[in-house]
Design a protein around this nucleic acid. Structure first.
Length: 466
DNA sequence: CGACGGGACGC
DNA sequence: CGACGGGACGC
């Protein structure tokens, strides 16, 4: 009867996308379609009828492709009449066929979402983020009771089920928004985690994981740097110790907008310890200079970064515009970052485009430049299994290293073991990583890098509504 | 040799 | 009160 793919309308998938209607027995599938089609793609309408008499039992099911469509239809159509002289209908979200329950699904269960958020998020940030989907009754963040520190989790209660459903369907995937379990029955929720699973230290590898920029709070006061320096889009990077082009260019490529980066060599091809990095806009160059001048890389060696002539004519108004460009560029870095997850992992929070502390990788391996991660909801095409000896490298170091072959999705370390998995959205990067890194030493840790066996099935995780 | 997560609320 | 059919992919 229905043209749409039966597989997709088969179960209650996505969750809460099917309606349960109680109507007069005279109400037909056509009556229903006429009134419900406006709310979204209807995958199936089923008017329950007596097997013998074929008379309607006054019960129908309407399957939408999305939960938000079903919820909107419920909100709008509950209590309405579908035909002259018929009783007002009742509309509920249908219990999943597998649940066995016939209890009405309450709005209480459909209006509160549970999200993962950056630690720096305040309740106001939470509201600001999710108010796009509807009126928020409240937003709360789960905090450590004694320290008040955010646990990176929050609840947002909307007024209507359709608003919660839209939030779940449309918010950034990194929030991992799901419907919250109702509060009442949950007595087992009192687990005490060691601290924060997202915090980044693995105990090993003393020293190489904690470098940060020399002057994090530094010179963003307009005035000092600007007046004396000639700002250009071209930077000269000098190092006293030997560095490779890949190392420096990888570092500077972390600032979006780098067009070109090259080691300067003398006539015999020997490195002069200098690298030139070009950016396609002033804001990026300014940002890179401010962040990386004086940056310790490799450990114990401070890089020196200065502007050099890029051949552009630079007269009066440009210097002032640079400041605005910086601001605009910083915003664009926030929004154009490869994935929200990357930003969320930075310890300084969501808004500051912190340059990751990449000076922490020490190895003899000639690593390619860094590449952006791909969205974490991409399809996994290849997975690596990595064994560390004697102990695992930190996740941020692994991301730094394994992203360089392209399309890195995620690094996962198996807790308590010396192994981990690396997900890629393409096969080639994974195979390139094996070719370059298997048996190699990074920060003193030897790695075996191989293709992962397929995962065991049967990990029944909670369903998401989208 | 090694092997598969993530996130729950003071009623 | 008011809860679960019909039809049948493509290896």
């Amino acid at each position: 009867m229905d043209e749409s793919n039966r597989a997709s309308s088969y179960l209650d998938e996505p969750p809460n996308s099917r309606l349960f209607l109680v109507t007069s027995k005279s109400i037909t599938e056509e009556n229903i379609r006429e009134h419900f089609a406006a709310f979204g793609e209807i995958q199936d309408i089923w008017v329950v009828k007596d097997k013998q008499t074929k008379e309607s039992k006054g019960v129908s099911f309407v399957k939408f492709s999305k939960s938000s469509q079903a919820c909107s239809a419920m909100e709008e159509m509950h209590g309405r009449c579908l035909a002259e002289g018929t009783k007002p209908i009742k509309v509920f979200i249908a219990q999943a066929r597998s649940s066995g329950s016939h209890r009405d699904v309450e709005d209480e269960e459909l209006t509160r979402i549970f999200v993962m958020i950056p630690k720096a998020f305040t309740e106001e940030d939470l509201k600001d983020t999710f108010k796009a989907y509807g009126d928020i009754e409240y937003a709360i963040i789960i905090r450590n009771k004694t320290t008040g520190e955010s646990k990176g989790l929050g609840y947002v209660r909307f007024h209507k089920p359709s608003q919660a459903a839209k939030a779940i369907e449309n918010c950034d995937k990194t929030f991992r928004a799901i419907l919250a379990e109702p509060r009442t029955k949950n007595a087992s929720a009192d687990n005490d985690y060691v601290s924060n699973p997202r915090s980044e230290h693995s105990g090993n590898d003393p020293g190489s994981n904690s470098y940060s920029f020399a002057h994090e709070s530094s010179s963003y006061a307009p005035g000092d740097t600007w007046s004396s320096d000639v700002i250009t889009r071209c930077l000269l990077v000098s190092s006293r110790v030997a560095v490779t082009q890949e190392q420096i260019c990888g570092l500077f490529d972390l600032i979006p907008g780098m067009d070109f980066c090259q080691m300067q060599r003398d006539q015999y091809g020997f490195s002069k310890g200098q690298v030139v990095a070009w950016y396609n806009n002033l804001g990026s160059a300014v940002y890179a200079k401010e962040k990386l001048n004086g940056f310790e890389y490799p450990p114990g060696n401070r890089l020196s970064v200065s502007y050099i002539d890029d051949g552009e004519d630079r007269t009066s108004p440009v210097g002032k515009m640079a400041m605005q460009l910086v601001a605009a560029q910083m915003m664009s870095m926030v929004w154009n970052s490869p994935s929200g997850a990357q930003l969320m992992k930075t310890s300084t929070g969501y808004t500051a485009p912190t340059v990751p502390q990449k000076a922490r990788v020490q190895t003899d391996v000639a690593l390619p430049p860094q590449k952006k991660l791909v969205a974490s909801d991409s399809v996994v095409k290849e997975r690596l299994f990595v064994i560390f000896n004697p102990s695992p490298l930190p996740v941020d170091v692994l991301e730094d290293v394994f992203c360089r072959f392209g399309s890195l999705m995620e690094v996962y370390l198996v807790p308590g073991r010396n192994v981990g998995y690396i997900k890629y959205a393409d096969r080639k990067p994974a195979h390139d990583a094996i070719a370059l890194l298997h048996g190699k030493v990074i920060n003193g840790i030897k790695m075996k890098v191989m293709l992962a066996d397929p995962p065991k099935e049967e990990s029944h995780k909670r369903q998401r509504t989208y």
